[in-house]
Design a protein around this nucleic acid. Sequence first.
DNA 1: GAAGTCACG
DNA 2: GACGTACGTGACTTCG
Length: 917
Amino acid sequence: MPHLYLVDGSGYIFRAYHRLPPLTNIHGEPVGAVYGYTTMLWKLADELHKADGPTHMAVILDKSSKTFRNDLYDQYKAHRPPAPEDLVPQFPMIRDATRAFSLPCIETEGLEADDIIACYAKAALAQGWAVTIVSADKDLMQLIEPGLDLYDTMNNRRLGAEHVREKFGVEPAQLGDVLALMGDSVDNVPGVTGVGPKTASKLIAEHGDLEGVLAAAPTMKAGKLRDNLIAQADNARLSKVLVTLKCDEPLPQPLDELELQGIPDAPLRAFLEHHGFKSLIAKLSAVADAPVAAPKAVPTEQDPPCEHDSYETVVDEAALDRWITIARHQGWIAIDTETTGIDATRAELVGISMALHPNLACYVPLAHGGSGLFAEKPVQLSAEVALAKLKPLFEDPGVLKIGHNLKYDMIVLGRLGVNVAPFDDTILMSFDLDAGLHGHGMDELAATHLSHSCIAFKDVVGVGKSQRTFNEIDLDAATRYAAEDADVTLRLWRRFKPRLPAEGATRVYEMVDRPLVPVIAQMERHGIKVDRERLAQLSGEFSGQIGALEVEIHALAGGPFTIGSPKQLGDVLFERMGIKGGRKGKSGVYSTDVNELERIAADRDSPGKDIATKVLEWRQLSKLKSTYTDALQAQINPATGRVHTSYSLTGAQTGRLSSTDPNLQNIPIRTEIGRQIRDAFVAEPGNVLLAADYSQIELRLAAHMADVPALREAFASGADIHSMTAQELFGEVNRDTRGRAKTINFAILYGISRWGLAGRLDVTADEAQAMIDRYFDRFPGIRNYIAQTTESVRETGYTTTLFGRKTHFPRIASKVQHERQGAERAAINAPIQGTCADIIKRAMVRMGPALLEAGLPNVRMLLQVHDELVFELPEGDVAAAKPVIERVMATAAQPAVTLSVPLGIEIGTGLSWGAAH
DNA sequence: GAAGTCACG
DNA sequence: GACGTACGTGACTTCG
């Protein structure tokens, strides 16, 4: 059935003019309404392929201000103010736009657009066509009937009889009478004094129509309303005539001629290029290349190459407004921030880039120059002015912000009071789709997915001594680099977005990783307090001991050498001192690692016993000093007095987080001497640190995932799992068998080999194999789990966690044996380690809301160490916070996954991290 | 920048 | 027959 769309062009441009900011085109002409009108036509073009989309279409315009209504009533529209100055030149452009789309443009002398619309509507309905009037004008709502509706493109809604009933309380056919009674001050339709929409609707609903109301007037209760109705009955009747649409005039063009021909490329392109509507030009290219209707946001066609010269440098408010307006219209925008450094908690904002379509990207410099390199600062917007405009956009719930590693931008912008939401993050999308296949940095993804080679950051700022910060870069180079980043991010997003549902990655992306970003951003901003004096004191102590050991080691070696050089140490031990059993690695260097040195130290008869012991001690102290007590002091942010790590959400293939600058996930704990470093992580006065960790979570998950009843029962009853394993394997529990059992328990999580276990337990490979066999016999589920996991990864190339997170193992198909075996072991471990990561991430996402709900807004989550969360909280909140934290962590798998083992949580508090354990 | 070592889960 | 042998990380040192 034909479906006629009648566009109320005149009505639209007035609405668009008042609703959009005053945009200008590349010639400086005002085009706000024209731009809005053109995007609206595009929107209708998108309806083409839909079931109730248009088959016929026409744009209806007003021809002149004099119509038949002026003959009836000379005051009609007499007081309407003239069209605004900057709208007037846009009327002819509207006609240009309409012609560019090859749409009929209909206007008739003596008739208003509304009348022409009514005539066409009636004629089409009479032939059995469906009709949609593209307008939100209340006068046109009179025409609504079965088969005819209105389409309000600005609010993206269809208006039918229900809408009229809701708004006016009458049927569409009665609407003219309501409008007649209430009048219209703008059009000078008199109506009846004192009757507004409410009264008019009520009267018509009560009496059926205008004549009914007028007839009933004398019987109404005395008062102004009754008097006015009686006195102004003629005004009301005149008004009725004025608001009634003419619908029986001859049609200027027959209906059949309104048939749609499709979107013409050349004239439309010429029109868009004349005005410089870049986003629409890009869209036109997309449509031309992809005749099949593709999802609007994410076309699958090849994008054009990046054109760095097409990027715009935005330095005035009007230009910025233009970008913001388009972003608001289309509902998404790619963004990227440029700053003075890589530490988000201290870098200063230098500029912001944005992209709306491929090659439609800009850079907004905010703090360039000012370090002596420019004679004067280049013209640019102030950060204050730009952020005042961008904050509402970045926080607009209707506009999706797209970034690559948005955590960084969120921290920088968060420090300036801007909270970016909602958002998509292409680094996470890539990770959740392709973990294990390649890295997820933008340059690498651009090369992999877009065959595009990004401008290298170091080519922009230089390297080494002459390296500059981004604020020192001239605006042209800065724009090319920065806008390209936003452009590439947008292009990647268009690739990844449809892949998420297609490849089953939506759940882990939307439910786990994406919501974690603002949580981690907040943790990084909080940081943790470190006691500098304590660290300095430890550094001093270690320094003294290291110096003393150095003297002793050199004496034992018979001369000075660099202890920290594995090569020199190996030569000293195995050549000069003649210690037996040195093993050379593939690079020809003797191994001097902790296993080797401990072996020597444990050998009473070895001449290297003493030196090995002292080197081990020297190594431990050197490590602690250089990596922790010295380095951590340097990491304290002078502005906050705290240490702010950076978490990577995409660093570990299994889905774990990693921590850098500094790494706070490897602070010593296993030895007493290293443990002292944890005492330097402290709470602010009046607060305490709370450490909550999952007890044996990976073994519990293995018990669940491999379905091992004996292990499940042990966890359910709270038994010591390693003792229980020792009992099963060795028939008795003592220190030795428990230790061996613990080693085996961990080994199974990592993909065991007889040689590996043999090395750890200091037994022969055959003995190790016997233990493994016994383990599998006692816990047969483990054998099945390993078999199924390896089989599945060989078949699909990836593993999945309980929550659907994929990790790819391309080396599972390697022809090189040890690569293949390595991939197998990693694949055995990944579902367990990854599920653990999913669970604690879910706990982290829920923790903030749960604490708020419990009335604990001052409990702050600071750190995550794989199976542990560290909080800082007022001492008085500890009792209330503990059960909340425990509950959130223990139930984090639910409801998505129901585990057959309980998740045990251990919680401790103290003035320092060391004391909280 | 690679290799070796070692801190953590 | 030799090789390397437990999963996942990041930081520091030496050295070419």
